[in-house]
Design a protein around this nucleic acid. Structure first.
Length: 585
RNA sequence: CGGGGCGUAGCGCAGAUGGCUAGCGCGCUUGGUUCGGGACCAAGAGGUCGGCGGUUCAAAUCCGCCCGCCCCGACCA
């Protein structure tokens, strides 16, 4: 591409509405423009990179034995009612009506459509396993689109669905996909981790998220630094392991009441009674849908609301307001406790964090009476818990729940992919069956596997940039090489530059030449911004010695190449770098 | 959805105690001088001040409603 003919509208200044670096750079580098909140036009440069990522995804999906197809974006509501997700999916599902008032969904994911496609067509276990994938625009009516393409309302996604005759086949294929995903993100030049995650609305059991490590990431990952252990999970799912509290072996003290005027928070009570926060039994009242529950957790820890939500089977949990607390505990906010609580309120269940509350002795808790707390509170003797769950919000420094040896570390990540074992959720509800060896109709065992393609591009920029702009991994760079002729009015310069440009293209090296009549500094700034991995400068300095200058985007130093052999040498470099990226650890 | 902020030229911003032809930088056009890290000079073009309504002799500026956008908290690739 000749820059004078290209549509690459670069910007000197950051766009006012961009916050994260990938968003700023994608706009500044002329890769995309915003059309509405979470809706973008991909300009030629951005589209080239997106297509590079898609190509890598296709190659690896094909290698994993999956076949590409294309499902419709628009799908009738009946399909979603069959699976139950017309109601379950909530407001995030974009819904439209046709002229006859028939309802449709704009696909946010395609379990329903693929299941409807496969059922009736795949009839025998002999045709299994089968994996189908597509790369397509998805729609989600996000509560808050943000960070450019990171969380858009319309985005490109690769989604794959596998069909199996049994769990074992699914488990095997899950590993194949795990490996394929690792290859894809490695080839895209990303530093990532596969972590255990929460299945959420997708249903199913096992699931891993592929996280690209980045400070701007929206997810927090907890992981064990011990490589052999390798435990890694999102904070929503990380299993608690706070160690055995020493209180459990202490002799039980007598239950006592103390006057604690105005001492409401854990910090206040801790300071007032001169006890450590581990002694406190924090008592929280939650709304879980229409119901209310009392949740207990040790004073120094926090409740993981995602775990609570799952434990209660609720769609949403919300801390109760003061009026509700007063109604349930009989005391103002800050003096709630489990002792004699369940008896007085009847239908309100007491849910407790198993790891921090079970067997706790001599704890401190609210007396359900204004300005009073109880001491010497023992679980089992003084209060009864209806349900035990792991409700702990795991944090950095906790012991690893897997190897029990090392302290966990926390870091932020961008979720670029997720693989799920769906099981029979959709095949059951949508009656998608096949005939097994014994001739009986059985529902398919399914898996599904997503990659946010546009998000992957943003994640790559988050990991590869400096104060001047993007530094593309060559595998997903819009072009491999940028030629910068110093002076376009100089015939000698342009002959060398054009020859090199033509030769490189002839040898399959994607090249852009900045043939604009601009000063060198101006072109260098744009070159840094758009981040093409290799830059060839054709100017008087080199030409005087019969050379051109080669510089990597990330590097400071330049190398001189003889004009004659330059094309060949560059070609070798590009191909070697591409090969290096395909090597999977 | 709740809380906070913003909307003035293609982009980034000033102007806000109502007052004359609404400014600045970048970008754009033309001419000239420049030319190894976003040059300089000169002359231009470009605006329903987000929209509608109200107050007023007079509204970018005050009031009301609406729309759009961004950020912070509960979801997800």
């Amino acid at each position: 591409m000749r820059w004078t003919q290209a549509f690459i509208p670069t910007l000197k200044e950051d766009p006012a509405d961009a916050e994260v670096v990938s968003h700023k750079l994608m706009v500044r580098a002329g890769m995309m423009r915003k059309i509405g909140a979470g809706i973008y036009t991909y300009l030629p440069l951005g589209w080239r990179t997106i297509r590079k990522v898609e190509r890598i995804v296709r190659e690896e999906m094909d290698r994993a034995g999956a076949q590409e197809l294309l499902l419709p974006i628009l799908s009738p509501s009946e399909l979603w009612r069959e699976s139950g997700r017309w109601n379950e999916y909530g407001k995030e599902l974009m819904r439209v009506k046709d002229r006859h008032e028939r309802e449709f969904a704009l696909g946010p994911t395609h379990e329903e459509v693929i299941t409807a496609t496969v059922r009736g067509e795949v009839r025998s276990y002999r045709e299994l396993p089968l994996c189908l994938y597509q790369i397509q625009t998805k729609f989600r009516d996000e509560v808050r689109p943000r960070f450019g393409v990171m969380r858009g309302r319309e985005f490109t996604m690769k989604d794959a669905y596998s069909f199996h005759k049994d769990e074992k086949s699914l488990n095997d294929y899950y590993q194949v996909m795990h490996k394929a995903y690792s290859r894809i993100f490695t080839r895209c030049g990303l530093d990532f981790r596969a972590v255990l995650a929460d299945p959420g609305i997708m249903g199913g059991k096992d699931t891993h998220e592929f996280m690209v490590l980045a400070s701007s990431g929206e997810s927090v990952v907890i992981s064990c630094p011990d490589v052999e252990c390798g435990y890694a999970a999102t904070t929503d799912t990380a299993i608690g392991n706070p160690g055995a509290p020493s209180e459990r072996i202490q002799p039980m003290e007598k239950l006592g009441e103390v006057h604690t005027p105005g001492q409401k928070t854990v910090e206040e009570v801790t300071a007032f009674l001169k006890v450590p926060p581990e002694k406190l039994i924090k008592t929280l009242v939650y709304h879980a849908g229409a119901k209310r529950v009392v949740v207990l957790i040790r004073g120094d820890r926090d409740v993981n609301e995602a775990k609570l939500q799952k434990a209660l089977g609720a769609h949403e949990v919300l801390l109760a307001d003061e009026a509700t607390i007063k109604k349930i505990t009989g005391a103002p906010l800050g003096f709630a406790g489990p002792v004699k609580l369940a008896a007085s309120s009847g239908e309100v269940r007491i849910i407790a964090d198993k790891l921090t509350i079970e067997g706790i002795r001599n704890g401190v808790t609210g007396a359900n009476k204004a300005d009073y707390h109880l001491t010497g509170v023992c679980e089992g003797r003084d209060f009864h818990v209806d349900e035990w769950h792991d409700l702990l919000l795991v944090r950095e420094g906790d012991k690893c729940p897997n190897c029990h040896k090392t302290s966990l570390t926390a870091y932020r990540g961008i979720e670029v992919g997720q693989i799920f074992k769906l099981g029979k959720k959709y095949s059951d509800s949508m009656q998608a069956t096949f005939s097994d060896e014994d001739g009986a109709a059985k529902p398919f065992v399914m898996g599904c596997y997503g990659i946010g393609v546009t998000r992957t591009v943003a994640a790559a920029i988050e990991q590869h940039n400096d104060e001047h702009g993007i530094i593309w991994p060559i595998s997903i760079a819009p072009y491999h090489v940028e030629i910068v002729p110093m002076n376009v009015s100089d015939a000698g310069t342009m002959t060398v530059a054009d020859d090199l440009y033509n030769t490189l293209w002839r040898n399959g090296i994607e090249t852009i030449i900045d043939d604009r009549d601009e000063r060198p500094g101006f072109k260098f700034k744009d070159a840094d911004l758009i981040g093409i991995p290799l830059r060839v400068i054709v100017g008087p300095k080199g030409l005087a010695q019969g050379k051109v200058e080669l510089k990597s985007r990330g590097a400071k130093e330049t190398r001189l190449l003889g004009i004659e052999g330059a094309a060949e040498e560059i070609e070798t470099m590009v191909k070697k770098t591409l090969d290096d990226l395909s090597v999977v650890r």
